[in-house]
Design a protein around this nucleic acid. Structure first.
Length: 414
DNA sequence: GCGGATCAC
DNA sequence: TATGGTGATCCGC
């Protein structure tokens, strides 16, 4: 059969030699807002506007409040829902902090959005084998202090660069604090017994950057394995931002993406890089879990009896005739658990567009006005794009007015 | 080559 | 009361 020939080819190309990681910040926008306003912590909340919620916290999710849901539906599901407006500058700056950590493990990592990225850990893991213990050791604030307003939340690992000792111990660190210009040792008169005592007489360390007391910390040395490394990466993100991330570890991007969802939030999952484990993982995986298969594709596949990745394989003869070459290849790679093993940096932007949703209008003058507004807006966007030394072709592709008499968008809230 | 459909985030 | 915006790819014409 034609289909089987292709499967053989793909099987031969199977590459299990890469360690690909997908990092996904947990309920990112919501987590940032909760971090900066702890009063939101115990409430169901979502970030976004009346029209659209970008994300919700886990409390709100229990009520069925999801990303990509209009705010008023969210309120209907959960009347106490607190909706916080988007604060993109903030998310961008937190995202930068996260990306700077990821870059230490793979300079060519590929960000998919503010809260998601793929990286190839393969090279780092090789280098890691000859890495001194100090470089694998990190100062970790006790997690109980994540919400504390009175304790320092600066990234304590920044001091590692000025700390000269070959190895790190808590005693030596305390000694270092007494000398460092970034810290001050003070006698604690109040009863904040939980602060970092550097001796038994109630002395504690104050961070001079934020003027707050250092919370208790411990030193954690991470091992050489991929899982240890990803634990380290997630811990460092949490120490720096007070936000948690989940991760998937797998031999390719397609699998890593599915994995990062498995132990969410604040967890990770690894697929061992051997054919048996990969096939076992894929076995009962619903096709919808795979990035690229959306609601429509899922429904079409369901219609021909395909629900899981195994079904893709079993119905390969049928799919071969129903779908294009490109789609069929894509399906066959999925049911073999094969995906891209090269994490590539974003290539250059190929297009720029502007669109807006507005309430029903029909007067030609109003429609014309909308057109002009869009052109103006797109023109502004173009100005802020670096176009020097580049060939640009501008073409008006689509001017589309969609008249909606009622909301008809069918959303996938599963 | 174009526009519609689909998808991710 | 009320359902977003941007970029990309594939497919059928």
């Amino acid at each position: 059969m034609e289909a089987d020939k292709l499967l053989e080819d793909f099987e031969q190309q199977r590459d299990l030699s890469h360690t690909i990681v997908h990092i996904d910040m947990d309920a990112f926008y919501a987590a940032v807002e909760m971090r900066d306003d702890p009063s939101l912590k115990n409430k169901p909340m979502a970030v976004g506007g009346d029209n659209m919620l970008s994300t919700s916290n886990y409390h709100a999710r229990k009520f069925g409040v999801r990303a990509a849901m209009p705010g008023f539906i969210g309120r209907k599901l959960c009347p106490e829902l607190v909706i916080v407006p988007l604060n993109f500058e903030k998310y961008t700056s937190v995202s930068k902090q996260v990306k700077s950590i990821i870059a230490e493990y793979d300079a060519n990592f590929c960000p998919m959005s503010l809260d998601e990225a793929y990286l190839d850990l393969t090279e780092h893991l090789k280098k890691r084998l000859s890495m001194p213990v100090k470089e694998r050791t990190f100062i970790c604030r006790h997690s109980d202090y994540a919400d504390s307003r009175s304790h320092c939340k600066c990234d304590l690992n920044e001091i590692k660069s000025e700390y000269a000792e070959e190895d790190i111990t808590v005693d030596k660190l305390n000694e270092f604090f007494t000398k460092s210009e970034h810290f001050q040792v003070v006698q604690q008169d109040t009863d904040s017994a939980k602060a970092t005592n550097i001796d038994k007489e109630g002395k504690c360390v104050v961070c001079l950057k934020c003027k707050k007391v250092l919370p208790p910390f411990r030193l954690v040395t991470f091992g050489m394995s991929d899982e240890d490394t990803v634990n380290e990466l997630r811990t460092r993100i949490e120490q720096k931002t007070t936000l948690t991330a989940s991760a998937g570890i797998a031999p390719n991007m397609m699998l890593a993406k599915v994995c990062s969802d498995k132990n969410k939030p604040n967890g990770q999952y690894k697929i061992e890089p051997n054919r048996e484990t990969v096939m076992e993982f894929i076995k009962n995986l619903p096709t919808r879990k795979v990035s690229g298969i959306g609601k429509v594709s899922e429904a079409m596949l369901n219609a021909v009896g395909v629900y899981t990745c195994t079904d893709l394989y079993e119905k390969r003869g049928l799919l071969y005739h129903l779908y294009s070459q490109i789609s069929f290849n894509y399906f066959m790679r999925i049911c073999l658990g094969i995906g891209s093993t090269t994490v590539e940096r974003d290539s250059e932007r190929k297009s720029m567009s502007t669109e807006r949703t507005f309430s029903e209008i029909n007067r030609p003058a109003d429609l014309n006005q909308k057109c002009e507004e869009l052109c103006e807006s797109l023109s502004e966007d173009l100005k802020s794009e670096r176009l020097k030394g580049k060939t640009v072709s501008i073409k008006i592709k689509t001017v589309k007015f969609e008249v909606r008499t009622r909301a008809h968008t069918v959303r996938d809230y599963t």
